[in-house]
Design a protein around this nucleic acid. Structure first.
Lengths: 194, 194, 194, 194
DNA sequence: AATGAATGAGAATTCATTCAT
DNA sequence: TATGAATGAATTCTCATTCAT
């Protein structure tokens, strides 16, 4: 019963923060849409900010877990990159609120370097970066990829993934399945033609 | 004298909205940092929202003007695409507040379809889209590009540009000049190897 | 405890609205004189206007209840009219704030046809009108009254009652008990001399 | 030209104060609807309150002038009373804004004994009172009227006139010409049947 | 006589948070 | 766990009035 209400608060807050933004969501609104009263929010959380923090933490934990499941040994290195795209695309589809919450609220939190938003974004950045670095270095070494500077490529690919997520989460629906075109686009940019 | 103060209000608001977000910026703060009193904001603008609206409008007008200056006849079609990247990269560098303001505030305004944010984002989207469509179709026709489906490519390139802007505007500085690597990345994805 | 404070707010507001007028009464003043803080006003009422609305409603409800207690069977019809005068006179004496609040604030609210002021004034008007109509018609039929046109008489008597109330509520005290002279005045105008 | 604008300000203010009330009318609104700017208001008047004061003064001056024109020698005393009714009725019809302004704004000004509203109302009260006193005393002496106590009658007739004015100015239109029924009503109350 | 620009004082309202129970 | 009542601190906005010209 108790867990129930706490979870309801988290779910409601996630949705509201994602759709309206943190600043535009009031504690009263969270309480009402969760079917509880405001003081209960303060029983379960230290304050509005902590609800947000907890959500971010949860999102990142789930993300990390999924990230760990990416197969370590693949037929070739590009498959790893392709898997990275697919993971993010599928996340954006299965948990749209989570992604939107990050996209819409983190920017304005970025003034504060110590903010958990920043911290989590950094950690995620490191995870992806080192994942990509390994793949690109191995691919360059094996001749699978044209030997382009790795650090630059990492960032470019990261930008592409982020751009696609931003579009999926905040933009309008598109008729074409551009997500997979993006993977092919990336493949052509990395792999030399015979 | 008069124009001075109004312009100061606009400049201050642009900076504050960009750095802190619209909701986190108070009219008192705008007034103080502009060296005026609050009521003057209401003399020059209908309200806080109108300050925002005016800024968005100005940003879009300047953007449109610059967009028009993109050279129509280039040696090849990829140069057009390259110019598009360069235009946005240089804008992000020369007017960081403008870009940050859009990136950080528009998402949370997007719930409202009629909001000027939405409107402006749509118009900009159309401009870039038709610009890219023309270049890609011509390039495909002339054999300059590998003949990939145009509509998908448009979106992918758009996502890449947006991803780069997002990184430049909201992310941390990077040592490498990834922006130009992105152009090369794009070139390899479009132009067939001999 | 809780009801206490809400009632204090209502009582204070009634007094202030009556004495100073709605527009001249601030929420801060209501709060201070009620011994509460401003936000509590907004906890119990939607806003300043709703405090007013609630008061008007309460006044009308009490008025209606009293109106119902007017005896239906009297020795003659003029007694009914006399009772109507007495009811209003005694109300003006026992609840001066209520009457003053209506007299002083409703006029400026009358531009809006849908305002509760208008609505309540109309309903009260109907109650009195039909009460008078019945008495006058019966009195005319029985020969108790000189047979003057009923609809005109209704309005004239209504005007007289209103004029007296206005004087009692907004004017200065008079030495003479003109209220009862008004009843006699009315009697002479209605009842034929032998 | 100059007088023109000042008069426009007075006319506009009279209308606005009458329709919306003093407190609900802003100086900006007065300025705009008068086709001038706010500072001009302060060139011609000391402030908003003085505009009001001037209007009240003008209304009273015009009223006094008209009051003086009431014929001193009439066929009988009741004609004087009848003339008093007619004067007020015709004033309410010819200058509705003036009457409404007084009716709607003076009550809330009455807390202040020294306010011009109070002063003017008092002076008008005296004028009518002494006018009525003379007529009633003479009529009583000559046997034209039933000999009822004069002071009471004065107040009752005053209340009736005020009630009718209030109805004409603030109430809804009525089909019947109750104003003249009121005079007849009064006549029957004063003059003995043979 | 007239105005564009500016302001001090205060208005209604909101919000995250807490207290007593 | 849970809540009805309450509040300190802001927030957006308005208004009568004034200044410089």
């Amino acid at each position: 019963m108790a867990k129930n209400k706490k979870n309801k608060i988290i779910a409601t807050s996630t949705k509201l923060f994602a759709v309206q933004g943190f600043d535009n969501t009031t504690t009263l609104q969270i309480a009402k849409e969760s079917g509880v009263t405001e003081p209960l929010l303060y029983y379960h959380f230290k304050g509005k900010e902590e609800i947000f923090t907890d959500i971010i933490q949860r999102i990142f934990d789930e993300y990390s877990t999924l990230f760990e499941t990416l197969p370590k040994d693949t037929q070739n290195e590009f498959e790893k990159i392709s898997n990275l795209f697919k993971l993010h695309i599928s996340l954006a589809e299965s948990r749209p609120h989570d992604g939107r919450l990050i996209m819409a609220n983190c920017p304005s939190k970025l003034k504060n370097d110590r903010h958990i938003c920043q911290e989590v974004v950094n950690r995620q950045h490191e995870m992806i970066t080192s994942y990509l670095r390994e793949a690109l270095e191995k691919g360059n070494a094996s001749g699978e990829f044209d030997a382009h500077p790795v650090e630059d490529l990492i960032i470019v690919i990261l930008c592409l993934i982020n751009g696609i997520l931003r579009k999926k989460l905040l933009g309008k629906k598109e008729a074409t399945s551009y997500e997979f075109s993006a993977i092919e686009f990336c493949r052509r940019a990395l792999i030399p033609n015979k």
